[in-house]
């Protein structure tokens, strides 16, 4: 039973799973060894062996450069800067953006002691200067830290001779004004067109 306990312990570390739900998941895996447990173990092994961080953009993929960087159909003149890989995936889900990405790996934070040297900023500056990029879209989060990062990047990119833009901030699709917070309404009024 020690192995099963160990499995439960590991599963309970996953986001969204506590000890109770990890126990249920483990039991479910045990009940379906051929159809679920073994394929899952194999997939985990394969992914763990193959996964790597793209040396160009910071995305995760099984190849380096990643599929997005290697895709010749994409517009290489537009670069979208995101904080985390999850943000890249969110933008990719929209199927609207056809440019390339750059993952910073976090955001500047005075409290956590995260400075520019801790993020993938030199890589961004180098790409903006050496690759044929005309526009950099800063898609950082609309938080104090996210916007501080965006302002810092705007400053750093001035020498690179690229147009720096930011995502619009305001009323979400399906949002009713009555239910919106003051901050969103303020941003929406400021960004009116």
């Amino acid at each position: 039973m020690r192995e099963v306990e160990h499995l439960i312990q590991l599963l309970s570390r996953l986001p969204g799973l506590g000890p109770r739900s990890a126990r249920r998941a483990a039991l479910h895996l045990i009940k379906k060894p051929e159809t679920l447990m073994e394929p899952l173990a194999k997939a985990l092994n394969t992914t763990a062996a193959a996964i790597r961080t793209c040396s160009n953009c910071g995305n995760v993929d099984t190849v380096d450069p990643c599929a997005i960087c290697a895709d010749t159909e994409r517009d290489g003149s537009i670069l979208c800067v995101v904080e985390e890989v999850a943000d890249l995936w969110a933008l990719e889900r929209t199927d609207v953006f056809s440019g390339r990405y750059h993952v910073l790996g976090g955001r500047l934070s005075a409290l956590d002691g995260i400075g520019p040297e801790d993020l993938n900023i030199p890589g961004l500056i180098s790409r903006a200067e050496t690759q044929a990029i005309t526009e950099v879209i800063l898609a950082t989060n609309l938080t104090v830290d996210g916007q501080t990062t965006a302002h810092y990047l705007t400053d750093r990119l001035t020498a690179a001779n690229v147009t720096v833009t930011q995502l619009a901030h305001g009323v979400p699709v399906g949002g009713e004004l009555d239910y919106l917070d003051d901050g969103t309404l303020t941003a929406a009024l400021r960004a009116r067109r």
Binding site: A110, V144, H151, G183
Partner: peptide, 16 residues
């Protein structure tokens, strides 16, 4: 915070 998000220096002051 929302008032200052698009004002770099003031936002940095708030953060600091």
């Amino acid at each position: 915070a929302a008032r200052l998000l698009d004002r770099p220096d003031r936002l940095a002051a708030l953060d600091s």
